[in-house]
Amino acid sequence: MGLLKGSLTVSRYMIGGKLPDGFWDFAETQLKANLFQEIEETADELSVGWVAVHDYLDLDLNRNAFALEPYLVAGMRVDRRRVPASVLRKRHRWEVDKALALREGRGLSRAQREELKEKARLHLLARMPPATQMAEMVWDTVRGEVWLLAAAKATRELFEDLFRRTFSLPLTPRIPYLLAADLAGKAAHERLEAARPLTLYAPEA
């Protein structure tokens, strides 16, 4: 699904400001500074970074993989560990029972129970393989328009954060009103501002 085959879902953004001089060198430096980092051998919950669009295992992202002038294309890879609630409940219960046995009948405070829950969660996280997702990004550097080939709110938020962190450029969602302001032009700006909802309501005669 996406750039190479299948259907596409596109979230659009506009880039504000002027691109830095020597843009493609700048882009390479910034992308390489924010490449995806594997968390397979760690207990980290989340890792977000850039990879090549054609292969999320390509963690080098050389220029010929991202520069399709005037487009910059890259993949945002997201690896995330999640502990299923039922598994956490079971492990938490096991930790609580163990602690209670050591306390010879004295109960556990709320804070102690929370602490044990966190301990159980960290114990399990280290044993969960991370799930991998990838979303493709296309940046039309001439139009100043960026497409993220994904729609989910959580994916968009991760992308917006990664993009801003990588390029330090303002990224504005291309929402209907802003698109309308561009398309209608200055002459119609006041009318657009003043526009109020219309209705098709037709009361029964």
């Binding site: 259907s7 596409l8 879902t9 596109v10 209907p176 698109l179």
Partner: peptide, 12 residues
């Protein structure tokens, strides 16, 4: 959709 005018499942 009306809220964002986002194109989804675009079949080329």
């Amino acid at each position: 959709n009306a809220r964002e005018l986002m194109l989804g499942s675009l079949r080329l």
